[in-house]
């Protein structure tokens, strides 16, 4: 029983660390990418992968109680509102006339 507990804790720690790395990769992407349209995608890495892994890790760490329910609620809420606000920002940029630049298309060649 104790052994099983240790295994779940190890999985939880791995998920938390992986989630934090995912979040920092998303932030790094939003700093490195050249224009607005590609930065949207970098923010989406944080919004989906980082949130899933971190909340899942914290949920496994805390066991099954009211805290898990709250984490689930936060996750469900972020899952509905994250894409919505992403879409709102993209749509507002499109309406205001910020068309995606042709400069970065096919820049490296057709290996993508």
């Amino acid at each position: 029983m104790n052994f099983l507990y240790d295994i779940t804790q190890l999985i939880a720690w791995a998920l938390i660390l992986l989630g934090s790395v995912m979040v920092i990769i998303g932030a790094l992407g939003s700093l490195r990418f050249p224009d607005f349209w590609s930065r949207l995608h970098a923010a989406s890495v944080t919004d989906s992968g980082g949130v899933i892994l971190l909340l899942l890790g914290m949920g496994i760490h805390s066991g099954f109680n009211l805290i898990t329910f709250k984490l689930f609620l936060i996750g469900a809420f972020l899952f509905i509102t994250g894409p919505t606000s992403s879409h709102a920002v993209a749509n507002a940029a499109l309406v205001s006339g910020a068309k995606p630049s042709k400069k970065n298309q096919n820049e490296i060649g057709d290996e993508g």
Partner: peptide
């Protein structure tokens, strides 16, 4: 997520919007 992570971390980001 894994695909985009590879794109972000690669030195020459071969993006093709």
């Amino acid at each position: 997520n894994w695909t985009i992570t590879k794109v972000i971390l690669s030195p020459n980001m071969n993006i093709k919007q």
